[in-house]
Design a protein around this nucleic acid. Structure first.
Lengths: 196, 196
DNA sequence: CAGTTCCGGAACTCAGTAGTTGCGGAACTA
DNA sequence: TAGTTCCGCAACTACTGAGTTCCGGAACTG
């Protein structure tokens, strides 16, 4: 008589967190209700509250598992030249998941800038991975001598994520292939210093 | 007997709108209450509702008058060279009002990406003026032959606003003088094409 | 079996806030 | 002075949504 009773169905966890992210991508943090999440996940509110004690905790848990579709550092392209590495990231899958994450980020911006826990969680799951991917590609290009060591890699790695976020959230213009080409060939590569 | 009764004190309008922006800079759109605004403005809630019919209308009106402290196109520096024009914008007043507007922007991001009216109002008052200022300075430099006509002025004008917003909202790092120097000398100027 | 814990769903409590109304008083008009 | 509209303030209504509890039923243990 150790564990009597029906087992908790942990496959519901993922369903609920995915539903949370879906709702978050469509409304904002404040407009999200537990009821919306429950309906979308086909679950009861009690089932949600048995796993996470509050709305905030649910949302932070959902955000924490939002980096699964992101560009893991292990899967980054390695073509031998920075420009072709950058272009290799632009497959349709990556563009789609990127757009979804930007909508979620828009919903969470207010929460992010007011609670340190939210900042840490969102930064780790949504903001950091993208910058880290660019930083990795650019640093590698510098290391192999494609550009001078004087390059400010940390600042340049933020360039495309920052411009894409600004464009999507505050200009509401499409973050599409022409945009990336314009950023890569018109801003990022020209700003990198020629090798000495 | 045309206008009997006590006149409406229109100096209260500005007090209330300023209080609204203050609260907005400290909390988010959803957490702002009319009561907070009333207390901060030393006004009654009735006085607020007599002027604006709803919370949304009050906030949009407040945002619309938030561009007063911004860099009006008429006051832009004209030193004869782009770099010194850019540095001339970086006075402490401008940096301070810029930081305040970024906090307000963080509070309104969710609202912005979901209601077209809010997008238009916030874009016009907070986002556009900054980009327009940089666009004006860069375009003038290109016109006077400081850089080649092939420069993508529209994209480069968004560079510093986008990086500053990203840095403040999503990295929570200071948008200070070293940051601007790094952007101007490390990214923007190198990315501009040499004159033909 | 019996007892327990899960499930979805519905009904419930409770707190907070948008928006309204009325009060006493001040400022204005005629 | 009489009538009106403003003011700050406090009481009030109406609603929404977080979090809880209970129900009938299913899944598990011994």
């Amino acid at each position: 008589m150790v564990n009597p009773g029906r087992k908790r169905d942990h496959s519901r966890d993922a369903d609920i967190l995915q539903a949370t992210l879906d709702v978050l991508a469509e409304t904002s943090y404040a407009d999200l209700t537990i009821e919306m999440v429950a309906v979308r996940a086909g679950a009861g509110r009690g089932t949600i509250y048995r796993r996470w004690t509050s709305k905030d905790e649910l949302i932070l848990a959902a955000v924490a598992c939002a980096d699964q579709a992101g560009p893991e550092a292990g899967k980054l392209p390695d073509t031998g030249a920075l420009r072709s590495d950058l272009l290799a990231m632009l497959d349709p899958d990556w563009l789609g998941s990127s757009e979804r994450r930007l909508r979620i980020l828009a919903s969470l911006t207010a929460m992010m800038s007011r609670t340190p826990d939210a900042f840490a969680a969102i930064n780790r799951a949504i903001v950091e991975p993208s910058v880290a991917a660019y930083q990795h590609l650019i640093q590698r290009a510098v290391d192999r001598g494609e550009f001078a060591k004087s390059a400010d890699v940390a600042a340049l790695a933020q360039l495309i994520p920052a411009m894409a976020t600004y464009r999507a959230l505050f200009l509401q213009q499409p973050v599409d292939l022409p945009f990336f080409f314009s950023m890569i060939d018109g801003v990022l590569l020209p700003a990198l210093p020629a090798p000495s």
